[in-house]
Amino acid sequence: MADTVVGANPEHHAGGQDPNRRDFIHIAAAVGAVGAVGGLAWPFIDQMNPAGDTLALASIEFDLGKVELGQQVTIKWRGKPLFIRHRTGKEIAEAIKGDTADLRDKQTDEQRHKPGKAEWLVLIGTCTHLGCVPTFGGGEYGGWFCPCHGSVYDTSGRIRKGPAPKNLEVPDYAFLSDTKVKVG
């Protein structure tokens, strides 16, 4: 192969053709091919994103009457656990006390519940580290403890200790009445 290449290059230009026009054809063809393959690749990548019906199942309503004071009910929302916690006065007080602590993900307790509804905490129940479900009431702050890698959350769902970087996420939700919330 190598010995034929030596003579091939000068011959390419010796035909009297303008090399720029030939180069243009090569480049245009290559760009066209790459563009076509790239364009076709996107549908094959995007098909893995959530499908229309998955996106459609995005909101639920929940009756708060089911949750006694001091309890938590876990429901499934978008395939994930959702914590609905009915906090006691002591737990709220502890959460407010935590506002002034050295927090990794700074948020006051006020920002984590709806105005005037401090007793109700609605959180996505997946640890912000790697997505395990933290256990209710565990850990030294009385909030949650993640069994996987030891993240500790306080009674406001804020990260206090362990590897998780963020507070437990508060989803979009609204009170439809005093005893009913709509999540999503």
Binding site: I45, M48, N49, P50, A51, T54, G79, K80
Partner: peptide
């Protein structure tokens, strides 16, 4: 992660792929 899951959590689309 959403792209890997095909949803908002590990679920049926994830298992299928």
């Amino acid at each position: 992660t959403t792209w890997l899951w095909g949803g908002f959590a590990v679920d049926d689309p994830t298992l299928n792929r």
